[in-house]
Write a protein that binds this DNA or RNA. Structure first.
Length: 230
DNA sequence: GCGACAG
DNA sequence: ATCTTGTCGC
């Protein structure tokens, strides 16, 4: 693939506009027996990133395996261009997965992005994979604060009213999370599916477990590569 | 010019 | 994102 490390922000913007035309949003029809979560971890000031994807059975959400990879990145973190830092490493982890999930939940936004091209959409188009973005903070859009009760939701839209995703109160009296479709899924289904991934914590199991995995990996508690669980 | 600003 | 202890509230 193209080397993102040498791209300038203007060039990255052009690429986002090109890839954006390939994003497909539609109700999710396929099967849903496996779901996965993707995340990245790194040491502050370091150019080494630790990427990981955790595969879980659905709807039990029991983890069945994970893929972990280490990679060098030079593209800086620039709001709106997160994909250029994390997607390359995530694709490496993706290729190592013996079994691809039906849906991949990415830590970050999908179309809830200035150019509708958040990391979940970016990854989805490149991997031709159905993806959902689950973020802890807003990047773009406007919304009304959902009720304090677990399960409350409100729409996230652009200033013209176009729907970008949902703001979901996954736990009572806890900050909400932002859910948006990445690729090959639509807004209603991305929310419906993500809701089924909430168990005991604020964050959905797929990305929560992926986050734990990449952190342990970075700290040397887990070896690189693919490992089935059971 | 002033805020906002995924990870 | 990461670092980092205690503290407040359900």
């Amino acid at each position: 693939m193209l080397d993102y490390n040498e791209l300038t922000v203007p060039e990255a913007t052009l690429l986002q506009r090109e890839l954006q035309e390939k994003v497909m949003l539609a109700p999710y029809k396929g099967p849903l027996n496996y779901i996965a979560g993707a995340d990245i971890s790194f040491n502050k000031f370091s150019t080494t990133v630790y990427a990981g994807i955790v595969l879980l059975k659905f709807p039990s959400l029991i983890p069945v395996g994970y893929s972990l990879v280490k990679k060098e990145v030079h593209f800086p973190y620039v709001p709106g261009f997160l994909a250029f830092r994390e997607v390359p490493a995530l694709l490496d982890a993706w290729e190592q997965l013996p079994l691809k999930p039906d849906i991949l939940v990415v830590d970050g936004h999908g179309i809830a992005h200035p150019r509708r091209m958040g990391i979940a959409s970016h990854f989805g188009v490149l991997a031709q994979q159905a993806t959902i973005g689950s973020a802890k903070k807003k990047l773009y859009g406007v919304y009304e604060e959902p009720g304090p009760e677990k399960g409350s939701v409100s729409l996230l839209t652009d200033r013209k009213g176009q729907v970008l995703g949902n703001v979901l109160r996954s736990k009572t009296n806890v900050k909400p999370i932002f859910v948006s479709p990445g690729h090959l899924v639509d807004v209603p289904d991305s929310l419906r599916i993500l809701r089924q991934c909430i168990q005991k914590y604020r964050l959905p199991e797929p990305t929560r477990l992926a986050h734990n995995a990449v952190n342990q990996f970075r700290l040397g508690a887990i070896p690189e590569g693919w490992t089935g669980m059971s």
